[in-house]
Amino acid sequence: MLAQFVLFDGFDPLDVIAPFEVFSAARTFTDGVTVELASAEGARQVPSGIPGVALTAAARLAPDRADLVVVPGAAGRLPGQGADDSAEEQIPVILSRALTTELPKMLAEALAAAGTTVATVCGGSLVLSMAGLVRGRHATTHHQGLDLLGAGGVHVVPGRVVDDGDLVTAGGVTSGLDLGLYLLERETGPKVALAVEQLFAHERRGVVWRDQGPAPLSAAGAAEQPR
C-alpha cells in the first residue's frame, strides 16, 4: 500500500511526523508498505508553521495511486506574518492559503477514488470542510475547531479518532500517533499494529468512533429505564 502524507505551507509538523513514523516503522514488520511525503506542487521544501522547521516533499500528491492520504492541520505562522497576529486568526488564514492551491482538487479526487482512504489529524479535517468536501460526513478535529467544523455541515463527533469509512479523522495534535496505529491495524491487521505500538512504547487512547450500534441513553433517560 502507498501512504502519502500531505505537506502544505504552514503545516503542523507533529501532525505529519507521528503517523508517518508509524507507517515507516511498519516496514520493519510487513512487506508492501510505501510511505511518501507529498505536496500538491510536487517535490519541494515545505515550510511548516513552526519557525525553523521544514520537511521535504519527495513527490506530488497522487490520488489516483495512493491507498491512504493523510492531511495535517496547521500551526504557528508563516514567515512574513506579523508577530501580533492572534492565534485564532493564524490557523484559518494558513488553511485558507492551502485552499488556493491544487490541494482541494486533489483531495476531492482522493475521496472519490475507490479503495482510497483520506485521513486527517487535528485541523486537517478543517481543510476538507472549508473546501466543501465532507458535508454530511462524521468527523472530528482539535477541540477549538469543533464549532468551525460543524459550521461546514459536518456531523461533529468529539472523539479522538472517528472512522467514517473512507474518511478517518483524529482530534488534537497528539492524536496523530493513535490515528496512525489505528489505520495501520485497519490496513495490515492487529499483529503488525501491535508490534509497532510496542516498538513505540505507546498505548492507544480512547475509543474509535464508528457509526454503529445503538445510540447511548441520556443520563436522565437511563435513570427512567425499568430495572
Rank of each mutant, 00 (worst) to 15 (best):
G180Y: 14
G153C: 09
A43I: 05
G42H: 08
L61V: 11
G136D: 07
D9T: 11
T117E: 01
V121E: 02
S125R: 07
G42Y: 05
K105D: 08
G32V: 10
T174E: 06
L148W: 00
P13S: 07
W209P: 09
A222G: 12
F8Y: 13
A26W: 03
G152L: 04
L78K: 11
A114S: 13
A83Q: 09
H138W: 13
L217N: 04
V6P: 09
A112I: 10
A3Y: 02
G49F: 08
A54T: 08
A3C: 13
G136E: 05
A112E: 07
H143F: 13
L128P: 02
R186W: 02
M1R: 13
P63I: 06
I91Y: 12
A170H: 13
G42W: 04
G180M: 12
R27G: 13
S129H: 07
R135N: 04
H155S: 13
A75R: 01
E224I: 01
H202Q: 06
R210C: 13
G145N: 04
L148A: 15
A114I: 02
W209F: 13
D147Y: 06
G171W: 03
P47T: 07
M106N: 00
L2T: 15
V53R: 01
L2E: 11
G176Y: 08
V207L: 10
L133E: 04
A43K: 08
P47K: 12
V22K: 07
R204T: 14
G189M: 00
V118F: 02
D178N: 07
R204M: 12
G145T: 02
P92T: 00
W209I: 09
L107S: 03
E88L: 01
P47E: 13
P51H: 01
T169A: 11
A195Y: 03
L99E: 09
R60G: 01
L103F: 04
G221I: 05
R205V: 11
D164T: 12
A193H: 09
G159F: 04
A201L: 12
H142W: 15
G80M: 03
A58S: 13
V127S: 05
S86T: 12
E185W: 02
G115R: 00
A215D: 15
S24P: 01
G124V: 12
L184S: 08
G165P: 09
V69N: 02
T100R: 10
G171I: 12
L95P: 02
L217F: 05
V16H: 01
Q212T: 14
R227K: 11
G115C: 07
V46C: 05
D9P: 15
A110R: 09
E36F: 02
D178K: 14
G132T: 06
V156M: 14
D164W: 07
D15A: 06
K191S: 11
V156Q: 11
Y182Q: 05
A139V: 12
G123E: 03
A119I: 08
V168Y: 03
D85P: 00
D211F: 11
G52Y: 08
L184K: 07
P158T: 13
T101M: 10
I91C: 00
G206Q: 03
Q198R: 15
L194S: 10
S86Q: 01
T117V: 15
K105F: 01
E88Q: 09
G124R: 03
G124H: 11
S218E: 15
G145S: 14
V157D: 07
A87H: 12
